[in-house]
């Protein structure tokens, strides 16, 4: 089965499922922050490494510093969950979660990891639940890096097809927001397609 055979119906389903998953995640974070989150429409692209780089460049400024948390998930479908937060957002989050006016770097780091953890597990769990499968999460790691370092400089696996599911998390009242990228490639794209096919069959039956 070719990856290119991802039809507009497949994309539509995945986008809708991502929307539902994001709804759950927003509610979870809203709970944590005691605030109301604005929902954004998710974007879906199937591209390659260059496409991924250009999409990240498009959303994230190359020279600014960000808290970038990456978490891997694996199972029938596996991939990488990336959450990107500005300095300011991260500081606001640390301030809120740790209830101190000047959160330490470690406090901020821990707060970012905690938030990412909730985001990734809610989004991915919900998404996979809708697709009738399960995934395992691996320990996340956070780095403070500039936008152009989100993707490794030595990345040469350019021939891979990559699916990018991206959206935004936004809590205006707390000035906390971030970008979410879910990346998967090759095998997972094929399996994702198969799972969506089952979903489509139910729908058109």
């Amino acid at each position: 089965m070719k990856i290119e055979e991802f039809s507009s119906d497949h994309l539509d389903v995945l986008k809708e499922l991502m929307n539902i998953a994001m709804g759950n995640a927003t509610a979870s974070i809203a709970d944590l922050l005691q605030a109301f989150g604005t929902m954004h429409i998710p974007h879906l692209t199937i591209t390659d490494m260059d496409g991924l780089k250009s999409q990240i460049n498009h959303t994230i400024s190359a020279d600014e510093k960000y808290y970038v948390t990456k978490q891997l998930f694996g199972g029938i479908i596996g991939g990488e969950f990336i959450f990107v937060m500005t300095d300011e957002s991260a500081a606001n989050l640390g301030h809120y979660l740790y209830d101190v006016s000047q959160p330490s770097d470690a406090d901020i780091m821990d707060a970012v990891i905690e938030l990412t953890n909730i985001l990734s597990s809610t989004i991915i769990s919900r998404l996979t639940e809708e697709l009738n499968t399960k995934v395992q999460f691996f320990a996340p790691s956070t780095q403070i890096i500039s936008g152009n370092h989100i993707i490794g400089q030595d990345e040469t696996l350019n021939y891979h097809k990559i699916i990018i599911v991206s959206t935004e998390m936004e809590f205006q009242s707390h000035k906390i927001s971030g970008y979410i990228f879910i990346l998967a490639r090759d095998e997972t794209i094929t399996r994702l397609r198969e799972l969506i096919d089952q979903k489509l069959e139910e729908l058109y039956a």
Partner: peptide
């Protein structure tokens, strides 16, 4: 230990029914 954060993480774990992770930095 910072029990406020720790207990929050325990609650999150139970509510979401998935693992939560602690940051592995020096001071935390």
């Amino acid at each position: 230990l910072d029990y406020k954060g720790f207990q929050r993480k325990i609650r999150t774990t139970l509510r979401l029914a998935t693992p939560t992770f602690y940051d592995a930095s020096l001071s935390n």
